[in-house]
Design a binder for these strands. Structure first.
Lengths: 240, 240
DNA sequence: GCGACTTTGTTCCTGCGTTCACAAGCGGCT
DNA sequence: AGCCGCTTGTGAACGCAGGAACAAAGTCGC
């Protein structure tokens, strides 16, 4: 592999040597991984960038560029060895280790996520559950029992939880977040519709389900040219 | 991760004024809306771009530019009138109408989403539920009863469903998607970890929960400089 | 073994989105 | 009434991501 030219991020004292892989590419790599494992199950051992790109819904040039960040694991004239590619994408994404997950807030959504097979299947075993509700404490759920949120720091540290999933209502989310951070958790997936304040060394990804719908709503209105009550939108009239 | 699978802007008669609002801005507007309504509940009537940007976790210049797409509803030297801003963002996003939702696949996740209060609270009432399982058909759930997937086209058309939420396993997702499209649904929120094939006039947003974790995992590895088993990550990637 | 074909990996370029910076505008204060 | 300070809205620059095109490289057929 030729040396990439993306090194130069002298953003201060501690040059961050990482940063070579764009965030958007990382997100797509997770998709490729999914498609590839699915293909391997069907016995596919080799794929061209064109085919894989089609299955993943991206441009083939984009795909090749993304994969170039992983390394040169393709064979010209043939394509990519699916098994080897999966292996190397997993290594880049840090999936060689199983990251254990804690789910906080065992309501409808938390319950569903605690049982979501896609997590353990992808190497993310759920190893801790927390809630505030006394009635839930101790209740067994998928081989685990629910602990009180107060024990988050201790339990997370003990079980080496690396990812916390917050499914609490908004008012509790920041408190829970602080507890997770106290327990050494540096990755948080936040389903509560609010922006969490965290230290610089903690990363939060927010999944805002209602916002997703609002975005869909916007595009729908755009497509139809109506505001949904049969009335044509006049953008100029609207803005004054 | 939310993947925007198609940004098609069909060549309509009135495509001149549209396309002004970037996709990324629309996504952020939904966040601003959330912060604003929360602030209004606390009695805040006026906010500066600086404060609002801080609460939403974005740059203030970005925020002002986003809001400029909505219209000029700020007062220089003062800030934005929160109520008026909410009103106008909602209008831009097409939220003046309540879009009704159908949830397909009443497993753990589908069950949780069917009961998710954030949907109706934000003007997205759930008006139809579907599953394949005979044991679930007719079961009442939050004021609705579960219908068979075969009836998707008829029921969606009748109840004017505008958004379909797919929570089925992967093998069923494409079939369900086709049924939704047949029922006139043009917006789909897909929780099944696969890429759906749809006509150009249908928009799909994908929420891939496991991919979110993989992205977190990647950044975690980057931060620590180890792959989680105490071993330094590939020095080539590190050195550039 | 050699040529032609296929596909990768990379380079260049274009376009978009974000950020900076500043002029215009509005309210408050004297 | 006029000035001052604060905040918006926007024009310009910058940086990054995505797409087209191409050269290198490896395979398959003959």
């Amino acid at each position: 592999m030729t040396v990439h030219e993306h090194g130069r991020y002298s953003t201060g004292i501690q040059d961050l040597p990482y940063r070579a892989v764009p965030d958007a590419a990382v997100a797509r790599l997770a998709v490729y991984l999914r498609v590839l494992t699915s293909m391997i199950e069907q016995g596919v051992t080799t794929m061209s960038s064109e085919v894989l790109a089609g299955a993943a819904g991206v441009n083939s040039a984009t795909l090749r560029k993304d994969l170039s960040h992983v390394g040169s694991y393709g064979t010209r004239g043939v394509g990519y060895d699916t098994a080897r590619l999966v292996e190397n994408i997993e290594r880049l994404l840090g999936l060689t280790r199983h990251h254990s997950i804690a789910v906080v807030g065992i309501g409808n959504l938390g319950h569903a996520l605690a049982n979501y097979p896609g997590f353990p299947d992808r190497g993310f075993p759920v190893t801790a559950l927390f809630d505030l509700d006394e009635d839930l404490i101790g209740v067994p759920l998928g081989g685990l029992s629910v602990d009180h949120v107060d024990s988050i720091p201790a339990v997370c540290a003990e079980r080496e939880v690396t990812i916390g999933v917050i499914c609490t209502p908004v008012p509790a989310a920041q408190v829970v977040c602080d507890l997770l951070v106290a327990g050494g958790v540096q990755c948080i997936l936040n389903f509560a519709p609010m922006v969490l304040q965290v230290p610089d060394d903690v990363e939060v990804r927010r999944v805002d389900l209602a916002a997703e719908l609002q975005i869909l709503s916007f595009h729908q209105v755009r497509r139809c040219g109506t505001n949904g009550v049969g009335q044509v939108v006049d953008p100029i009239a609207v803005s004054r």
